[in-house]
Design a protein around this nucleic acid. Structure first.
Lengths: 229, 229
DNA sequence: AAGTGGTCTAGACCACCGC
DNA sequence: CGGTGGTCTAGACCACTTG
């Protein structure tokens, strides 16, 4: 175990003990460094992960205090859908349903400011059963290569992930009743829930794509892990 | 803008440009430090956030390469339900439905290994309408104070975040049809979806609590943001 | 065996913000 | 204004793992 890990465990123990209750201002970095007998950088590293986890709050001049917890953070990973299927031990299938180019009329949410777009609707299957319906808008101004891509052969999901880096993403998760497209292509009944993932990606501020990914609710869940120490 | 941020933006540009395509091994740290004219630590900081975002992969001796992306990480924050309601501009209401102590017979999933437990079922409301049904198991061996807590006055959710730190959490998200309890207490119809959050927290390896939090699907969504640069 | 990333140090200076 | 966290440096040594 590294020193910063040992120090983090000890700090965690003090928070748990109520040695440092919520709201308490803990010693400043140099004091901690002296008392643990390490350099200030090592203390900063130990504190950093506790700040990221939401257990500590830091302000210049005011110091570091134990957070009155309001929210706890965990990490969400959303994989390429083919990998998701294969990780479940299923065989992956893919089918393009529709692909067309257009302008702002496709951009119901006004997310792309009138740029030229391409809309792709396609279906990902697991062992022959519908697994995810992908409804995607691509910003052709930002991703010109998307105009020529053959989405009958490769899904936009996978093409993008191979071709197009992004620097920021916004994800919305919800449970919903099936949309009209879901009813047709996802083989769910009107009374069955679907799990909807909406994602918008940007590269250095410019919107790249927006997608609505819907799963039959009974067949899908997301697992996240956080902390681990 | 700090130097590590400027360097991160430049690295991101090279990844996007295909200057460094997926799979490419990028220069090692000391070379980057020399070419950017900064110390190695500054390069490490710039690389670190790109590794966390899943854009780069690093291995000793093998070097740093541009990831063939399989999954991208984003951060999920789940707040105290009262704050969630208030953030939506609603008025918060709370009602205890049931609370009792017992042993392993409550622990359907076998998560607590037969420890003494307390089960609490309660309802959180937004503007008088059911917002979240909370079904929780508390490990009394790990949290003895939970035996005496008055969950008619404060919800277990809020009591726990105020009293009980944890070091690791596992979260499962899914869309589901309503459970029997959901139908009774959440005022949803059998054909409406519910959004289910399952959480299990541990402190230094010991399981503390397990909870099933269900929301009427139409009234709830989770938003995450990642990257931002 | 050697080269890479991972950890740690001891120090400097800066920027913000509460006193 | 002063004290805190935030950034950065130049260096050392370690540990892993691949060629």
């Amino acid at each position: 175990m590294h020193r910063y890990q040992a120090i983090r465990a000890e700090l965690l123990r003090r928070i748990n003990n109520q040695t440092w209750p919520a709201g308490h201002v803990i010693p400043h970095e140099e004091e901690l460094a002296t008392s643990f007998g390490v350099a200030r950088g090592t203390i900063r590293r130990a504190l950093g992960s506790l700040v990221d986890a939401g257990l500590l709050e830091r302000k210049r001049r005011a110091g570091t205090r134990v957070a009155r917890p309001t929210a706890h953070a965990s990490t969400l990973r959303i994989a390429v859908v083919r990998h998701e299927v294969e990780a479940r031990g299923g065989s992956y299938g893919y089918r393009l349903i529709e692909s067309r180019e257009g302008g702002g009329e496709l951009d119901a949410g006004g997310r792309f400011g009138g740029a030229a777009l391409r809309r792709v609707l396609c279906l990902h299957c697991c062992d022959g059963s519908p697994f995810q319906l992908e409804d995607r808008l691509l910003n052709l101004a930002a991703i010109p290569a998307a105009r020529e891509a053959n989405f009958a052969a490769i899904s936009p999901n996978e093409w993008l992930v191979a071709e197009q880096p992004y620097s920021a993403v916004r994800t919305v998760l919800r449970a919903a009743a099936p949309s009209a497209d879901d009813l047709v292509h996802l083989a769910v009944g009107a009374s069955q829930p679907v799990f909807v993932i909406e994602r918008q990606t940007r590269l250095l501020g410019e919107p790249l794509t927006w997608a609505r990914l819907s799963h039959p609710g009974a067949a899908f869940e997301i697992v996240t892990e956080a902390g681990g120490y």
